[in-house]
Structures are given as C-alpha cells and as structure tokens.
Design a protein around this nucleic acid. Structure first.
Length: 202
DNA sequence: CTCCAGTTTCCTGGTT
DNA sequence: TAACCAGGAAACTGGA
C-alpha cells in the first residue's frame, strides 16, 4: 500500500519509516494522525488523509461484505442516479476492487532480488537471516545462508533449494546490473538496475 | 503452440 | 575440511 501511495501521489519514500507500518490492515486503520506523523512526517499526514479518504468512500478492506452491499443498495435506490451513471458506478467499483486485488497480489514478488529487497525493507522478524550492512549504498549481508535458501525455497514451493543454488541465481544478476559484486563473503550490493531498495524513491 | 527471462540444477575449479 | 565464490552449460518454468 505504501509503495502504491508513493507511486500514485509522488510521495518521497525516504521520509517513511517502513518499520512503523509493519502492522495488520486493521491496526493501520486505527492509527491516529499523530502516529502517521511520527512514522513519516509530512508524508505521514498525506498518507493519513489518503487512508481516511479511502475509508469514508467505502472501499476500505475493513468494510464487511454486508456493509458494502447496503451502501451499494442505498446508492442504487437514489433517484438522482441515471441508468448510465449507475452502470458507470458499478464498473468503477468493479475496477476499483480489481485494482486492489492486483496490488495485494503484486506484493508477493516472484523475482529473487525483489524477495530479498522486500525481506530487508519489511523489517519483519527475519531472525537475523538477512541484514543491511549499509542501506544507503544498498549493501546487505546474508547472515544465515541456508535459512535464507529455505525461505526462498518455500516461496517457490521448492524444498530442494539451498544456498549453493540461490547464490548461483544471485551471480546471474551481476551481468544484468541488478546486483554489483562486493568482494566479501556473503555480502551483496543492489546495482543500478534494481529499484526500491534504499527506502527512497530510487 | 512458441519464445523468453529468470531462474534451477549440476558442474569444475578456485578461495577463505 | 567446510563453506563460499565464479561462471559455463543446459534444463526447467511460468507468463506473454
């Protein structure tokens, strides 16, 4: 959602403390304007108003199916809506839903480097498996190599994954500029053709 | 169905 | 010795 907001509303992700937003949707909805400000300064206030806007317009995830149905029913019975406006409204709602589904599905990146990036940025409990060495420069260290390989294997439904094979996939990234070589064991660096790795826009 | 990028698998050989 | 790194070769896989 943060990524989506940053892209759509041209917000600078550098001001956002991503760890503050490592919460469930329900918890996000109950965060106050002050919480948002603390987590992301002026950006947080924008995010807060975007969220409030979504909530008051009735497309929020928090709405139950019944609440949604009632709202649609109410709007439908309102005579100021012409037939075409109704049709437009329905298709608008449909695409709105579809968009959210796509955004949510898109959060599960299928590429290895995106998987690593998201693991590093999520600051969810990675139990010291993977850590930033220098986030500004996009340098990170694999702490528990086999545990990381297991996580990647789980994502790809491949229980034969190991660090030997994962690291081969990482080395393929050197020639495409997704990663740059760092001459230290278990240390990698995001390259010029990666993006969204430094908790800033680039 | 083909084509392709992105791996996955396996390998030989080298380094820490 | 174990663990890691470099990169060739080829197979595989899911999406366009």
């Amino acid at each position: 959602w943060l990524q989506y907001c940053c892209d759509s509303y041209k917000l600078d992700a550098a001001y956002i403390s991503f760890s503050h937003f490592n919460v469930l949707g329900v918890q996000l909805c109950s965060m106050t304007k002050e919480d948002f400000t603390e987590a992301a300064g002026i950006c947080g206030q924008h995010l807060y108003s975007i969220l409030q806007d979504i909530r008051t317009n009735g497309e929020a995830e928090g709405d139950t199916e019944i609440q949604c149905k009632t709202k649609i029913k109410k709007l439908f019975n309102c005579s100021i809506f012409s037939f075409s406006a109704k049709a437009f409204f329905v298709s608008f709602l449909f695409f709105e839903c579809l968009m959210w589904i796509l955004i949510i599905l898109g959060m599960q990146s299928s590429h290895l480097w995106e998987f690593l990036r998201d693991l590093l940025l999520s600051s969810e409990d990675t139990s010291g498996i993977l850590d930033w060495e220098d986030q500004e420069q996009g340098i990170f260290r694999v702490v528990k190599s086999e545990a990381l390989a297991q996580m990647w294997g789980k994502r790809k439904h491949n229980d034969r994954m190991n660090y030997e094979k994962l690291s081969r996939a990482l080395r393929h990234y050197y020639k495409t500029g997704i990663l740059e070589r760092v001459d230290r064991r278990l240390v990698y660096k995001f390259g010029k053709n990666s993006y969204g790795c430094r908790s800033s826009s680039k």
